[in-house]
Design a protein around this nucleic acid. Sequence first.
DNA 1: AACGCGACCTGCGAGC
DNA 2: TGCTCGCAGGTCGCGT
Length: 324
Amino acid sequence: MPELPEVEVVRRGLVSWVRGRTIERVEVLDQRSIRRHALGTEDFVGNLEGATVADVVRRGKFLWMPLLDTSVGRDAAAAGRPAGRPQVALMAHLGMSGQLLMQDRNVPDEKHLKVRIRLSPRDGMPEQLRFVDQRIFGGLFVTAMVPTDDGGPGGLAESPLPLIAEEAAHIARDPLDPAFSFDLFYRRLRKRKTGLKRALLDQGLVSGIGNIYADEALWRARLHYARPTDTLRRTEAERVLGSAREVMLDALAAGGTSFDSLYVNVNGASGYFDRSLNAYGREGQPCKRCAAAGIHAFIRREQFMNRSSYTCPVCQTRPRNGRW
DNA sequence: AACGCGACCTGCGAGC
DNA sequence: TGCTCGCAGGTCGCGT
């Protein structure tokens, strides 16, 4: 469900509610939602209770909250480390259906409420941060903050910390990251022997792009999903990357893409970017660009990578004989 | 290195 | 009405 714009909407919504607040109590209502926390529920809860949220940071679709722990701070000082430097973070991945919601204590539990985090009181702010997840592909876990070789966590809010959550260290920077390097992306792309959409969805090459925005970026760039990456000219790679950046910024401005109540921001509201989609989910409907040029062309749906891909057969021509 | 596939889950709408 | 099927924004790990 959530791709970069949706996760960024959540991050922005969260930051003013949770930064500087202390986690008072954690309730895990479904163990499956913390299965990526290998040391179990007790360890998960123990790491969180008493810690203070320093920030909310994102890379690609991973979101985490570096944690300050006063006791860790004292230990750190004794050990000669800078006091108050986050050693761990609360990591969240929303998977296909995860939600992070800020709720008052009197709001009834959501049907798929998995984890409840009570925060220290603050005037006019909801008490609880709730993790709600229907399909349980997402989850929460505590992870170490480790030094990164590429200069910081990235995301739109550059954290001042030269550390990254360990479980996000294998994720490449995303196209909205000010430190994203097109040259590095293009060099790595040309070395791949694969199709363009597969590459766009590879979070180790470029992060944040999922099935919706891959199809939208390819449509905007007039490129086919199966185009071999090792034949892509620099201008074409710039076009598709620029399109991805544009479409995700547009979606961000619209509050994200929601087809139903599954994707909502931290206040429970849906985004409206689905009205602006040109390819995704539009099977059988006219290609708007072709229609504007007086050509009758209809968006086609095909199975690719065990999921649906939407393309215009006229303006996104399929590669022939691998010759470009 | 790349790819295909299954696993991890619940719920919805279509069709019978 | 109730059943089965296909489908859904993602990631990980296995075998080939």
